[in-house]
Design a protein around this nucleic acid. Structure first.
Length: 554
RNA sequence: GCGCCCGUAGCUCAGUCGGACAGAGCAGGGGACUUCUAAUCCUCAGGUCGCAGGUUCGAUUCCUGCCGGGCGCACCA
């Protein structure tokens, strides 16, 4: 927590106590309008009713009772009963020094107290290359993980691989038929990647793998295919800048006995029931719409049984399990949480984040994807055109609750329609400034010696104000699992910087001026130099958490 | 039919725990580079926050209903 905010909150509560007013959370907020100061509280509005007095009067008393506060230049009552705080020049100077001193750590916090969070995302079946729509989950899951890491959590990024079962068998059969040049069957996987992978398998394994009756070898071929495709997916994700810590294969849960152990645990917990020869889990007892089948009447376990085993496994490894799922899986929310309860675990340790789906457009027209032909738009092909920063940033900008209309023509345009360039340019501009400083032999001195209280131009004040926001934004974004709050902040900060840059010259000198005037110019240059250096750090930190590059040149 | 999500400027979208005049980018009109990167800045125009009620000192935000759109409701995987 920002030391200033903590101090203000404590001072407000103390003042409430002195006035005999009801205690309450000051809930310090940042006014949208800079004229209202750096911080504000609405506590007077909220306790006015209980106090039986007009809010403005309460606010005035509160402001008076606060007295002099460190780092605060003025306390003002405004509007219906807001109490606004205006920070002192010394506080602003301290902010710059703090950013410079903390460096990469500025914006990070220990709010998570080292709790271990497992974030599972993407987990697409490795029966084909990653579709562009999966990019949303890849970018978002990775950034949420980074946000949690930045707020003091221990984070595991995990991908669950479906490598057994009917889908894999079907995939194997598709590969065999493709290898033999036979037409695909009704439920076969199709598309160029199937034939290409079949050829790869033949090249890698020779004929042995692909010889024999289709039904007899489908499982083995499917497993080999999944293995190969999983590697390709891993490479695609790496291209997007996403690296998973753990890949858990469903088959390993079967082989390790984890599945059996989970079933036993569920039976022993008394939450299962034989019905029509099948084994049901009574998830409806914990909020699910209906009970779910664990073992079919023919004895084969369902995917849900694996899901339970996997959940039990993860809960044994982490304090909290986050699943990032597409809206087409929102039906899983109730059953997964119920499964946790049936396992005897606290369902609140299971958090499911649902993201709405992605509609692909090109020049405003929907891109028709033909499932029959296996015609899809892959992450790889888009990455070839624009690189990871643009694509990641595009996905991270938008609220997960809204369906994303992703226009390929816009995404692939190397134009200013991609706000990531706007943010990166701000960073590159400071880097360029630093190069200029060196070229001109400018000596910035030490930030401890710079007179940072000189910073009082409106554009400078706006930039300082923006810089102070990062820790709060990171904490909020992490808490809300809302990456767009950080992208929005980065854009606001970049805009504030660009306006500053247009209005205030950093490297100033006038060889014709007298000594005193030149000394004043140097002091101004130094203060501004450290201000923009701090801005560069904050931009880099924000982009770093988003895992988007912060280039020194563009 | 039931459940989840969405509806904010021409377009794509922000809007934090209910708070101060509802914001940004793009598109459109008009301006600014012999000086640290013009991938920038300034300015104008653009809104019944889907509709109707309710709660509140205060509602884009919370509640109810309706309209419109997306997704889901398997002994499928």
């Amino acid at each position: 927590m920002d030391p200033t905010v903590a101090q203000l909150a404590a001072a407000v509560r103390a003042a409430l106590g002195r006035l005999g007013l009801p205690d309450g959370d000051p809930a310090l907020e940042r006014p949208k309008d800079p004229d209202h100061g750096e911080w504000a509280t609405t506590i007077a509005l909220r306790v006015a009713r209980a106090a039986g007095r007009p809010p403005r009067e309460v606010a005035a008393d509160l402001a008076a009772a606060l007295g002099d506060l460190p780092e605060v230049a003025a306390v003002e009552v405004a509007g219906p009963g807001f109490v606004n705080f205006r920070l002192s020049a010394a506080a602003r100077a301290a902010l710059v020094r703090r950013v410079l001193a903390e460096g990469e750590a500025y914006g990070r916090s220990a709010l998570g107290a080292g709790r271990h969070v497992n974030v599972e995302f993407v987990s697409a079946n490795p029966t084909g290359p990653l579709h562009l729509g999966s990019g949303r989950w890849a970018a978002t899951g990775d950034a949420i993980a980074a946000l949690l890491d930045a707020t003091g959590h221990r984070v595991t990024r995990e991908y669950y691989v479906n490598d057994v079962g009917e889908q894999v068998r079907r995939f194997g059969a598709s590969l065999v038929r493709a290898d033999r040049g036979e037409p695909p069957a009704e439920d076969d996987y199709r598309g160029p990647h199937v034939a290409a992978l079949a050829a790869d398998l033949r090249a890698a394994h020779g004929g042995a793998l692909l010889t024999g009756d289709v039904d007899a070898i489908a499982d083995a071929v499917g497993a080999a295919g999944v293995d190969a495709m999983r590697s390709r997916i891993e490479a695609t994700l790496a291209g997007l800048g996403v690296v998973f810590d753990v890949w858990t294969r469903e088959g390993s849960l079967h082989a390790s006995g984890g599945l059996e152990r989970a079933l036993t645990r569920l039976r022993d917990g008394g939450h299962t029931e034989e019905r029509d020869g099948a084994l049901f889990l009574r998830t409806s007892a914990f909020g699910d719409d209906k009970d779910r089948v664990l073992v079919r009447s023919d004895g084969r376990p369902t995917y849900f049984a694996s899901d339970c085993a996997y959940l039990a496994d993860k809960l044994g490894r982490a304090d909290r399990c986050i699943y990032l799922l597409g809206a087409d899986h929102h039906g899983y929310v109730a059953r997964l949480r119920a499964a946790a309860a049936c396992l005897g675990e606290d369902p609140d340790r299971v958090e499911i984040v649902i993201g709405q789906l992605v509609n692909l457009l090109r020049d405003g027209q929907p891109v028709k994807l033909s499932k029959r032909s296996g015609d899809i738009v892959t992450i790889d092909e888009v990455l070839e055109e624009v690189g990871p920063d643009v694509l990641r940033y595009h996905f991270l900008r938008q609220n997960l609750d809204t369906t994303m209309d992703l226009d390929l023509a816009v995404v692939t345009a190397r134009s200013m329609e991609n706000p990531v360039y706007y943010v990166q340019y701000a960073h590159a501009r400071v880097a360029s400034l630093a190069r200029q400083a060196v070229e001109r032999g400018f000596d910035p001195g030490d930030p401890a010696d710079a007179d940072l209280e000189l910073l009082d131009h409106p554009a400078e004040l706006a930039l300082l104000r923006a810089l102070s926001g990062l820790p709060h934004v990171v904490a909020d974004a992490a808490e809300a699992r809302a990456t767009q709050r950080l992208t929005r902040y980065a854009e606001d900060l970049a805009g504030t910087f660009h306006r500053f840059y247009a209005e205030c010259r950093v490297l100033v000198d006038d060889p014709d001026a007298d000594e005193a005037a030149r000394a004043a110019l140097l002091a101004c240059s130094r203060a501004r130099y450290w201000l923009v250096t701090a801005a560069r750090q904050v931009l880099a930190n924000a982009l770093g958490i988003l895992r988007v590059g912060a280039p020194d040149r563009m």
